[in-house]
Structures are given as C-alpha cells and as structure tokens.
Amino acid sequence: MAKIIVVTSGKGGVGKTTSSAAIATGLALSGFKTVVIDFDVGLRNLDLIMGCERRVVYDFVNVIKQEATLNQALIKDKRTSDLYILPASQTRDKDALTQEGVEAVLNELAETFDYIICDSPAGIEKGAQMALYFADAAIVVTNPEVSSVRDSDRILGILQSKSRRAERGEAPVEEHLLLTRYNPERVQAGEMLSVADVEEILAIPLLGVIPESEAVLKASNQGTPVILDQASEAGQAYQDAVQRLLGGQLEHRFLEVQKKGFFQRLLGAK
C-alpha cells in the first residue's frame, strides 16, 4: 500500500516545490518507487524544478478528465530510476480537480508506487485542500518567520479537520515539520525565529532543517533537485530529512553558526 505524503505550508514561496522534488528524489534514491504530483494547477512549477518541462505532453487534469491514461501522463525521471513526475496543467485552474477524479488517480498510482508525494499549491482553498485530503502524512514546510509559522499552524488545523482521515475518524495524519531557509547567523542576531521557537509554537516533530543556501536557487534554475547536490549543505540536509522520514534517527545538522576557516574567508565560499 502506497503512502501518500502531502508537502504543504499555507504560505507561498517557502519551498514546497523544492522540498517535494528533493524528498521524492531522496525516496527514489533509497529504492522506493516514488511519484511526485504537482497539484498547483495553473501555476505549474514542479516540472521546471525536476528539469522535465520539455517532456510534458499530458498532465494531471488530462488524466482526471480521462483524456489520457496515467501511463501517458507520467514522466520518468532521467537521472533517478524509480522516480516519476505527474505534472499539473498550466492552462486550467484548480476547479479542474475533482475529489472523485483525484481519488481515482491516487488509487491507480497506489497499485504500483510505494510513495506518492503531493506538491500542494499555496493557500488554504480548493487546490490545497484537494492535495491534502487523501494524505497519510504531511510535511509542513515552514520558514523561520512569524507569518509562515502562523500559516503552517492554520494548515495543520485544516489537516486535522478536513482530511479524509479526520472525516472518517481514522488515525490522524502524521505531521512533520520541515524548516527551510534557516540561517543560523540571522537567528543569532535575533532577526529570525530559532528552531526551538518554531517547534514550540507548532508543537509537531521536526523532520529537518534546511539551511539557506545558494545551492537551492542554482539547483532550481538548472532543473536538478538540490538533494542531488551532495556537496551542498542543503542537499545533505534533505538527505537527512528523507532518512528521518524513513524512520532513521539522525542528529540535526547546520543549526549552529559555523566558524569560517581561513581559506573559506579568503575565498568567500559558502
């Protein structure tokens, strides 16, 4: 039985799509057959982050409307085996998603995949609710600033009241906090919330802390999930997060201000 994981946040621009791409890639690298679905109908981005934008022929909405089969719409990742992408439609809007349609697609995917990652759109409206409705687990992507934390809190409330598990009275959706764009220097300067602050407000288990890194922007622009950049701190932090998602116990890294060595200072490297 496939595990359905929604990557959500409420707020936009916090790193949902980057995290969806990285985590899906990480799960596939760990040997699990994984599909990542872009629920952001009308604002398709996942294909760019995954570097498969030129291979999109059919999309999620085509499959829901039965204009194409799932196999026609699924794009096999070129770099990572066992990884597939189901892109969103760029020409429709969120109303094209129906609960029955989404359920049918997820059920069909569940027959062959181990993990289904749902990349949620921002907001708390239909698109976001559709992405989280069928979830077994949620990765709540949060930036260390107050508005992002409040929006995450809101989305956690929706997860526990409007998901299928909540409606059926089943075990609640598993909650994981993924703190992105973390900058220990700015935390130390009091300009950013610390990990402890965010954990205290949201009171859910911490899956990972992704340090703010130039590697993320570079990876996005190149269409390579940042987790594949193992030289970068962000890539390593995502790798850790995936291992924790799979049940591993790992220390959190990159939380402290690192003293730059002589050469690093000289070269200005990050």
């Binding site: 929006d151 809190d153 809101r154 409330g157 526990q160």
Partner: peptide
Amino acid sequence: ERPVRSGQ
C-alpha cells in the same frame, strides 16, 4: 486533546 490551531 489535540492543539486548537489558528483559524479553528
């Protein structure tokens, strides 16, 4: 028994 979240 569970947190009452923002908006609830």
